[in-house]
């Protein structure tokens, strides 16, 4: 019984296939299962390159004007938005001593009045130069950590003073043109 049904089924499919094939051959109709679309792809690489080169030229000119720049700098796990003569307070243990002149390496963003340079994630340290001096190394004001659970005779008081460093940002500069690339590029660890 099953065998018969199976044979009938196979015959049916065979018939279907053959008839459809016949139809197609006689009418020359293409079986459209998915619509075919055509796109005109415009090759605008040259125009885009010219556009981007123009922008780079304008930015280089703006850089040479030496206006005040701001930068987003990553120090000791935190990010700060800094300009010239800013004081930055850094919480926690940080090795540099008082009076050290530091060049901040992890610069995420530099901007001026007319342009911004966005690093992915960090900008080239040869292009951007941010110098800072460590002004002060001290302990923070005393923070009182007080825990109490009412009616349970549980009371704990703890005084904590974290190390803080005050940093004065001396200057935020862009030292060279943006599109300057060295012949030999460094990959890997930079000295922090």
């Amino acid at each position: 019984m099953l065998c018969n049904n199976l044979i009938k089924f196979i015959n049916k499919t065979f018939q279907n296939v053959s008839t459809s094939r016949m139809i197609t051959s006689s009418l020359n109709v293409r079986s459209i299962s998915t619509p075919v679309t055509q796109e005109y792809v415009v090759d605008d690489t040259i125009a885009l390159k010219k556009y981007s080169d123009d922008i780079i030229k304008t930015v280089n000119k703006a850089v040479k004007r030496n206006n005040r720049l701001f930068a987003v700098v990553h120090i000791c796990g935190k990010q700060f938005k800094v300009t010239d003569n800013d004081l930055v307070l850094i919480d926690g243990y940080w090795p540099p001593n008082v009076g050290d002149r530091i060049k901040l390496q992890k610069v995420l963003l530099v901007g001026g009045m007319d342009f911004t340079l966005i690093g992915r994630p960090v900008l080239n340290p040869d292009t951007v130069n941010i110098t800072a001096t460590v002004v002060d190394k001290d302990l923070s004001h005393t923070r009182t950590n007080f825990k109490r659970i009412k009616r349970k005779q549980y009371m704990r008081i703890n005084f904590i003073r974290k190390e803080i460093t005050t940093l004065r940002i001396n200057s935020v500069n862009i030292t060279q043109d943006i599109d300057v690339k060295k012949d030999v590029q460094e990959i890997g660890r930079r000295i922090m």
Binding site: F70, V72, F80, L109, G111, I118, P121
Partner: peptide
């Protein structure tokens, strides 16, 4: 997706004080 790792504090500061930079980031 662009590997831009600016944190929320800095992005909020830029939104207030540097609107043109924020516009550049939003266009990007």
């Amino acid at each position: 997706r662009c590997d831009i790792q600016l944190n929320k504090k800095v992005l909020a500061d830029l939104a207030i004080w540097e609107p043109s930079t924020f516009k550049a980031l939003s266009d990007l």
